[in-house]
């Protein structure tokens, strides 16, 4: 039996995102980018769920969730 592996990832509530780019600046892995000046998008392959972006986001629209790897 293989154990279920869980990983933490950042999720952006894109409808409420103001595309300020604060999250991009603090991400140590360069895993976030602002798409077309509209909202932030997380690259799930790079994100390790450290939570720095969630802490920084002035609108608090980023959430760290556990997902099944």
């Amino acid at each position: 039996m293989s154990a279920i592996r869980k990983k933490k990832k950042a999720f952006v509530a894109q409808g409420d995102c103001v595309a300020c780019g604060c999250c991009v600046k603090v991400c140590p892995l360069g895993a976030i980018q602002i798409v077309k000046g509209i909202m932030a998008r997380v690259n799930m392959d790079k994100c390790v769920g450290c939570g720095k972006c969630a802490k920084e986001c002035p609108a608090s629209v980023i959430e760290i969730r556990e997902v099944i790897a």
């Binding site: 103001v18 595309a19 000046g37």
Partner: peptide, 26 residues
Amino acid sequence: FKPRSWCVYCPMGTMTQLICKVRNGK
């Protein structure tokens, strides 16, 4: 609130985001 809370309701930010939405068809 948070340090850059101004960015959430900054009129220039809102306006440029709106321009981007219109320009990029969203």
